[in-house]
């Protein structure tokens, strides 16, 4: 009875995708991609201990260091996650073809969609774990440094005889620059952007002839994608601006085809101390999912009857 109940699960798409994902994750880990985390650790820890030259008055002492830690850390996370997701995904299909693993897998009753989804999930698991570790390190460093800065500021405020309301206001302002939920939201935004890049690289790799081509085109799309919103604005407001037909069509095409990566620049606002609402984060997550799902299906559409 039990065996009958388990049978559908073992043969399910979900199960197959998970197996391929776990395998891909292991494969990537063996490629020693986590080495870059050492560099991140150095950046995060160094940004805490280096007393960089700053212009600051006694009341703002240390606050800028907190912003620097966030800025360095989230910057490094963005860089590592995008590079990792593009390069790892670009490597997957050619490597499986080269090792002939692909033939073994496709010879079995594994739908091609499951294969692609599994590969992508493996890369995303790798990016997620990397970001999680980096996030933990950043939060720990930021937590320690925020405590130090608050202590220093309170000592200064008491020495200068500040009234309690002023001391509380200063403490609240400094704590807002420390680890908080918006910062975790920013890390999620980094992950979403990396997920879109990974799924886009997967799509490109299904028709690309080399890893280099996939990598270059993916990065080009990444940078151009930061202008997509400009093209969309040209299209939406072309009537008022008096743009010509050709410019309008070019803007429309540009904005329809390319993903909008500028939306994920909310990270900058969070570094600057803005709070990110759950609704905004939820809507961003939907955007990320929308792209990832579409690109995965598009990859499958191309890959479905590709001959090797």
């Amino acid at each position: 009875m039990t065996a009958i109940q388990h049978q559908p699960l073992q043969g399910s798409h979900f199960r197959r995708i998970l197996v391929i994902a776990a395998n891909t994750f292991t494969q990537l880990v063996r490629m020693k991609v986590f080495y870059f985390m050492g560099i991140f650790a150095v950046i995060a820890i160094a940004s805490n201990f280096f007393d960089l030259p700053q212009h600051e008055g006694p009341e703002s002492v240390g606050s800028n260091v907190l912003r620097s830690i966030k800025s360095w850390s989230l910057g490094a996370m963005t860089l590592f996650s995008v590079v990792l997701s593009v390069v790892a995904t670009a490597l997957l299909l050619p490597k499986d073809v080269e090792d002939r693993t692909l033939y073994t897998i496709l010879a079995k009753p594994v739908p091609r969609f499951d294969y692609l989804a599994g590969k992508l999930t493996g890369v995303l698991m790798l990016v997620f774990v990397s970001l999680l570790v980096m996030d933990l390190l950043m939060t720990a460093v930021l937590h320690i440094r925020t405590g130090m800065v608050v202590e220093q500021q309170m000592e200064m405020a008491r020495a200068m005889g500040w009234p309690p309301e002023a001391i509380d206001s200063l403490r609240a302002e400094t704590l807002a620059n420390g680890p908080n939920l918006s910062l975790q939201g920013a890390v999620l935004a980094v992950f979403l952007r990396a997920s879109i890049m990974a799924s886009l690289a997967l799509l490109i790799s299904t028709f690309s002839t080399s890893t280099l081509f996939t990598t270059i085109v993916s990065f080009l799309v990444y940078f151009i994608g930061h202008f997509q919103a400009d093209a969309r604005d040209v299209w939406l407001h072309a009537g008022q601006e008096g743009e010509g037909v050709f410019a309008r069509l070019a803007a429309l095409l540009f904005s329809l085809i390319l993903p909008d990566f500028q939306l994920f620049n909310v990270i900058d606002a969070v570094i600057e101390g803005q709070a990110m609402s759950l609704i905004a984060l939820g809507k961003l997550t939907l955007v990320g999912l929308y792209y990832a799902v579409f690109f995965t299906f598009a990859s499958w559409f191309i890959f479905a009857d590709k001959e090797f």
Binding site: L256, I257, A280, V287
Partner: peptide, 26 residues
Amino acid sequence: ALLAFGAARIPYEAGLERQLCDDGLF
């Protein structure tokens, strides 16, 4: 499909951009 997908998401993205601007996040 790419164009249809793009046409479907543009209003959503434009709206989200406006919301993020209002929230001071953009």
